[in-house]
Amino acid sequence: MRRALMALMGTAAGTVLLVGTKAGFSSPASDAAPQPRAAESPIPGASPAPADAAAPPAANPSGVPAPGNTPAPGTKTTTAPAGTTKTTAPASKPTTTAPKAPRTTMKDGTFNGNPIYVEYGNVELSIVVSGGKMTDVKVLDAPSEHSRSVQINNSALPKLRSEALSAQSADIDSVSGATYTSSGYKLSLQSAIDRAFQA
């Protein structure tokens, strides 16, 4: 009887082991999977960092750039979160008033020319401008020490005046026989015209 009972228990135990093996069960000791270490467990919602990723730069509490990282002159450096530096462009300076555009017409008024020294004395003129045009040329000074100079100027100066008013510029022909006076007349006239445009 005892033998029959032992045989029956052995058969039952063998059946349980066979069924357990077929169902995929094994002993608790062999099934225990190695648990991941706490240091290796990923943070929920964060992607794992690659193995070769560089460590973030250390914080710089003083805000002074490290040697070799000095920004260009005129730039502004601020410290951003996590110790990174942010360089911004320098603030633009306010624009100043644009220079006054040159006049395209002469200003009305009377304008003196420069005194120009010629062979026998000075030639100096003034012009009268009205409506943006020369309306008169006045001789303030002309060579007069010699009677010959006075004779030449009495003939040349009215001709030069007429040409200047007609041309509305100092680009006029010299009067024959009055080369020095003509040269001084044109230079003094041009300086008076320049003043009328710059006024």
Rank of each mutant, 00 (worst) to 15 (best):
A167E: 11
Q168A: 02
Y117W: 11
R161C: 01
S166L: 05
L140W: 06
H146F: 11
P115M: 11
D136W: 03
E163A: 14
E145S: 14
D171Q: 14
K159C: 09
Q151P: 10
S147I: 07
E163W: 03
Y117V: 14
K159Y: 09
L140Y: 10
E124K: 04
P115T: 08
I152N: 00
D141W: 04
L140F: 00
S166G: 09
L160G: 04
R161F: 06
E145V: 07
E119A: 15
K138N: 15
L140S: 07
R148E: 12
I127M: 09
E124N: 10
S162W: 01
I127F: 05
H146T: 08
S169W: 04
N122W: 00
K159T: 12
S155P: 04
K133N: 10
S126N: 15
L125S: 08
K138H: 14
S144T: 10
L160S: 10
S130T: 05
V139H: 08
Y120G: 13
E124S: 08
V118G: 15
V129F: 08
Y117P: 14
N114V: 12
A167P: 05
L157T: 00
K138A: 15
P115S: 04
A170L: 12
T135G: 00
K138F: 02
I152K: 04
K159N: 05
S130C: 01
A170Y: 01
